[in-house]
């Protein structure tokens, strides 16, 4: 038995995330309702349109339950739009755009420009083996400030593109499009540790 990894499936590239995780042998579940959320131990927030997802998080009744789960330690991994949803500060967002403010970074929506400026580049990630990670940046958010307690795991041209603060990880590019599951593997590792810790705690409580 291992953790069930939820993939927020309101809009965006959730199917590719699910595929990467399945390739690693993880059990996965698409999350569209609070009931779905109740069955998962960790959550991936995919790329897509953050404004669309923000609306759907509210209309589906998922926003508050997800915020509560993150506050009590559920591991989350946000890619691109997912990074925006998790950031403490969103620049150039819509005024009514909601974020979970789970990691102390400021991100500028579409900070790298429009689609004609979207790009791919090799990203050096010292914390993982096997050479650079191929990053695909699509109308990507740009990290403009990183608070204390946030660990920057990779940069591109001096700008943080991969960061972590405890159980919250964010990346401005799209590991799910790279056919390279190393970052998903890292998240799965975090999720598994949290899951084992949680199971052990429940056993202790029962005793």
């Amino acid at each position: 038995m291992g953790p069930t990894i939820g993939v927020l499936a309101l809009q965006g590239a959730f199917a590719s995330h699910q595929q990467r995780l399945a390739e690693l042998g993880a059990s996965t579940l698409q999350v569209r309702t609070p009931d779905d959320l109740g069955s998962v131990d960790a959550l991936v927030m995919p790329g897509g349109e953050s404004t669309t997802m923000s609306k759907l998080l509210v209309s589906s009744g998922l926003f508050d339950p997800i915020a509560a789960r993150i506050a009590t330690g559920m591991p989350v991994f946000g890619t691109c739009a997912g990074m925006i949803l998790l950031a403490a500060q969103v620049i150039d967002g819509r005024p009514d755009q909601r974020s979970f403010a789970s990691i102390d970074i400021a991100v500028r929506r579409n900070g790298y420009g429009r689609q004609v400026d979207s790009f791919e580049a090799d990203i050096s990630v010292p914390s993982i083996d096997g050479g650079p990670f191929h990053g695909v940046f699509i109308r990507a958010p740009k990290v403009e400030r990183v608070g204390p307690g946030v660990e920057v795991l990779a940069e591109h041209d001096g700008v943080p593109v991969l960061a972590r603060a405890g159980h919250v990880s964010v990346v401005s590019f799209h590991p799910e499009l790279a056919r390279d599951a190393r970052l998903h593997d890292q998240f799965l590792h975090t999720a598994s540790q949290h899951y084992i810790h949680h199971v052990n705690e429940s056993i202790t409580e029962t005793n």
């Binding site: 199917a15 739009a81 400026d117 790009f119």
Partner: peptide, 22 residues
């Protein structure tokens, strides 16, 4: 440019991927 490649097929298809479910 700066080791960054724009306009490649993966970058073009990437935006289509992001619009899925919308």
């Amino acid at each position: 440019s700066d080791k960054a490649i724009t306009g490649s097929f993966p970058v073009k298809r990437g935006l289509a991927e992001m619009l899925k479910g919308g």
